[in-house]
């Protein structure tokens, strides 16, 4: 569903997208459209995008096309979702140990919406780190 979401094609565009949003969370998926993990994630993003449009906006970035942030944000996973609010990177305590980003494909739309909402509420209060409503730590995997 990546073709239904806006893409950003340069580092400048990414920066402008982050800077131009005054009171919405900017959700950026870094990855590649053809990657299977990204495909799953994009599906979720597309379904959520319309519902969260009042407080968040979703963009997709191809990390091959725009390699500028790979080092800065350690974009070495097939799919990475990051949140920004007023030019500030908002961290999320997902229980995974990496609070900077979501680096797996989420398939539950409502869960994703919940996370974005938490980010929005927290960021509005000036928080730099919010706690996700659900714990995604590895202990449930095994």
């Amino acid at each position: 569903m990546s073709y239904l979401l806006p893409h950003l094609h340069s580092g400048y565009a990414v920066d402008q997208a982050i800077l131009s949003e005054e009171d919405r969370v900017v959700v950026i998926r870094f990855g590649q459209d053809f990657d299977p993990t990204c495909m799953l994630m994009d599906e979720t993003l597309y379904k959520a995008a319309e519902k969260i449009k009042n407080f968040a906006v979703v963009y997709l970035v191809d990390i091959r096309e725009v390699p500028d942030f790979n080092a800065m944000y350690e974009l070495y996973d097939p799919c990475t979702v990051m949140f920004f609010f007023r030019n500030k990177h908002i961290m999320v305590d997902l229980g995974t140990g990496n609070n900077n980003k979501i680096n797996w494909a989420m398939q539950d739309v409502q869960e994703f919406i919940d996370i974005v909402e938490t980010v929005y509420r927290g960021a509005r209060k000036g928080r730099g780190l919010v706690v996700a409503p659900k714990d995604y730590s590895t202990k449930y995997k095994y």
Partner: peptide, 23 residues
């Protein structure tokens, strides 16, 4: 949603332009 198609200014360093810091 806009896609910010305007041309990138010269010597633009993405991220630096908005003062971003990595981790």
């Amino acid at each position: 949603p806009k896609t910010f198609q305007e041309p990138t200014p010269e010597d633009y360093v993405p991220g630096r332009g908005r003062g971003a810091t990595g981790f």
